[in-house]
């Protein structure tokens, strides 16, 4: 029966992406099993299947609606995102949105573990208002077998050296031959400038503890992140971050970004549990910013991300606009 279930689930590719990259590190047994199978079977497909089998034998995990770090800059820094104040914070921490001074159009594409079912496309628009900054985004993840569509609205407000933000998501998860489920969930975040070189950020995902389906208790994870960023000068950012999901062990992340020559930034990052390493490069000529990043997973392989952002007109008129 279990075998049948597994096969069925495998065919349906049931949100495996959400579970697999986390489950791998959940416990030694799983970990051992994957490596063991990898050694003796040398078949990626079987490895995939066997890990799924283990997952199912432990517990069936539905983890739809996980936060999806967006933008190649964040990817290049092992998903460290909570302290950033660039336009991409519209997805990653609405607390950082208030620092945006120009309107931006954002677009990104990523693919995980080189599997077509695990790809994400997202577009966004960020617009400074007379008070605060508003952003709207649309993301789609997966393929026709399983997919998630998220429409989000973010608002950020800067009050002296503290910025705050709120994000509302409308999430729809769909599975072929099974149906669709929808829910609304909220995120809040803040970034505090502690010292000229040091800032701290906090982000709570799904603060409302929404569920996709109350009858099956299908939860959307509630995740809290806190981090520090150190910027000794404009070329360098070093950030550390802790992340805790109610259901899983805490993750530590750290990332380093350095502008090695003008407009060219190199990035690298490390995260634990699950182990993840990333490298990225960012090029920002004039009004464009082009970023690429890849992440490695020791068992599942490479993931890639490509992002583009275009700076439009500036809304707020300050002295800086004349300079730039």
């Amino acid at each position: 029966m279990l075998y049948y279930l597994c096969l069925k689930y495998y065919n349906a590719r049931l949100s495996v992406y959400f579970t697999i990259h986390r489950i791998v590190a959940i416990d030694n047994f799983t970990h051992f099993f994957i490596c063991y199978t990898q050694h003796f079977l040398h078949l990626k497909r079987l490895l995939f299947f066997s890990s799924l089998l283990v997952i199912l034998s432990i517990r069936i995990v539905f983890a739809s609606g996980e936060p999806n770090p967006t933008g190649a800059r964040v990817w290049g820094l092992a998903n460290c995102a909570v302290t950033f104040t660039d336009p991409w914070s519209v997805w990653n921490n609405p607390g950082g949105l208030a620092y945006t001074e120009y309107s931006h159009v954002l677009a990104t594409y990523n693919i995980r573990y080189s599997m077509s079912g695990f790809q994400t496309m997202a577009v966004g628009y960020v617009h400074p208002l007379s008070k605060g900054v508003l952003g709207a985004t649309l993301s789609r993840l997966g393929d026709e077998l399983y997919n998630e569509t998220i429409v989000g609205i973010s608002y950020g407000y800067l009050w002296k050296n503290v910025s705050m933000g709120l994000r509302v998501n409308y999430l729809q998860a769909g599975m072929q031959e099974v149906g669709k489920k929808q829910t609304v969930l909220f995120e809040i975040g803040t970034i505090v400038q502690l010292l000229p070189q040091l800032s701290a950020g906090v982000h709570i995902y799904n603060v409302s503890q929404s569920r996709l389906d109350a009858s099956t208790n299908e939860r959307i994870p509630t995740i809290m992140k806190a981090g520090l960023a150190y910027k000794p000068h404009t070329k360098l950012i070093w950030t550390v971050e802790l992340e805790k999901d109610i259901d899983f062990a805490g993750t530590f992340r750290t990332g380093l970004e350095y502008e090695i020559v003008k407009n060219l930034r190199l990035r690298t990052g490390i995260a634990t549990r699950p182990q993840l390493y990333s490298f990225g490069i960012g090029f920002s000529p004039k009004k464009l910013q082009l970023d690429y990043a890849f992440q490695t997973h020791s068992t599942l392989g490479l993931s890639h991300n490509l992002s583009l952002s275009i700076r439009l007109l500036k809304k707020k008129t300050t002295n800086e606009s004349i300079k730039s």
Binding site: P232, H233, L236, L256, Y258
Partner: peptide
């Protein structure tokens, strides 16, 4: 040396 206070290696 990334800054006078930070050096890094890979």
């Amino acid at each position: 040396s990334l800054s006078p206070h930070i050096s890094a290696a890979l």
